[in-house]
Write a protein that binds this DNA or RNA. Structure first.
Lengths: 121, 121
DNA sequence: GACAATATATCGCCAAGTGATATAATTCGC
DNA sequence: GCGAATTATATCACTTGGCGATATATTGTC
């Protein structure tokens, strides 16, 4: 079907992709990594994690990469890596748009430490 | 309520917040602005838009700002502006993490990634 | 031995995105 | 002036997805 829109990836799935981009990890390790990557702000429960893993396996974004002890390891596929890249690019474009609308500080002026005032809130 | 996680905002809602951050707009205008802000990639249908508007009104992120002709205008509240700011900040932190993991090459390569067809998840 | 942490997995609830559909006014080409 | 496309708002049902609750078992620690 004519998909009208390039689908956006949920933050939760993006965090999983980010965690696996560095190296293969098992489920529980992903949970902890997401927490670390979000500075403790996003705490992913098992329902979210294993639900997402199931879908990502089905769609070929990740694949199983062996078992050790009672740990099941997962790794990114090429497709998963591409989708991560695309979504990160969307993030950058989003921020660029926000900067053009003066909703964020300008990183260029930020380099010159003086005169940089954050405009949030 | 012991909310574990700071909630992430869906891309769709974020696009609406971004559209209203500049000035008050009516529904149809928001649709067009989202398309523009996403460079034509995100096309929001009426179901998504008016569903989101309803929720955002209920949660006090936006408010009604008068009617003209057959147009209903909406504007951001302080709460809405704050949530936009927080989410944009999360976007920046996400990209910073990705950069530290060397997942973002030069922007030229990243732009190529958009030629891939994204499979739904 | 008890308890916290590690580790995987499923269930059902509900919120949310989406296409389809409806309705009506306005604008534009022919 | 007429039909079609566009503008504009709104609801509906469908399906996906996030998430808490729950279950089970192991490992490490006090």
């Amino acid at each position: 079907m004519n998909s009208k829109t390039i689908e956006t990836i949920s933050p939760q799935v993006l965090y999983i992709l980010l965690a696996l981009a560095v190296k293969e990890r098992h489920g529980y390790e992903i949970m902890k990594q997401v927490k670390a990557d979000s500075d403790g702000k996003v705490i992913m429960g098992p329902g979210t994690l294993y639900g997402a893993i199931k879908r990502m396996l089905k769609n070929g974004w990740i694949k199983e990469a062996g078992e050790k002890d009672r740990r099941k390891y997962y790794s990114l596929t090429e497709l998963g890596r591409k989708n991560l890249s695309v979504e990160l690019q969307r993030y950058e474009e989003m921020l660029e748009k926000a900067r053009k609308k003066n909703l964020l500080g300008n990183p260029v002026t930020a380099k010159f430490a003086f005169s940089y005032v954050r405009k949030s809130l």
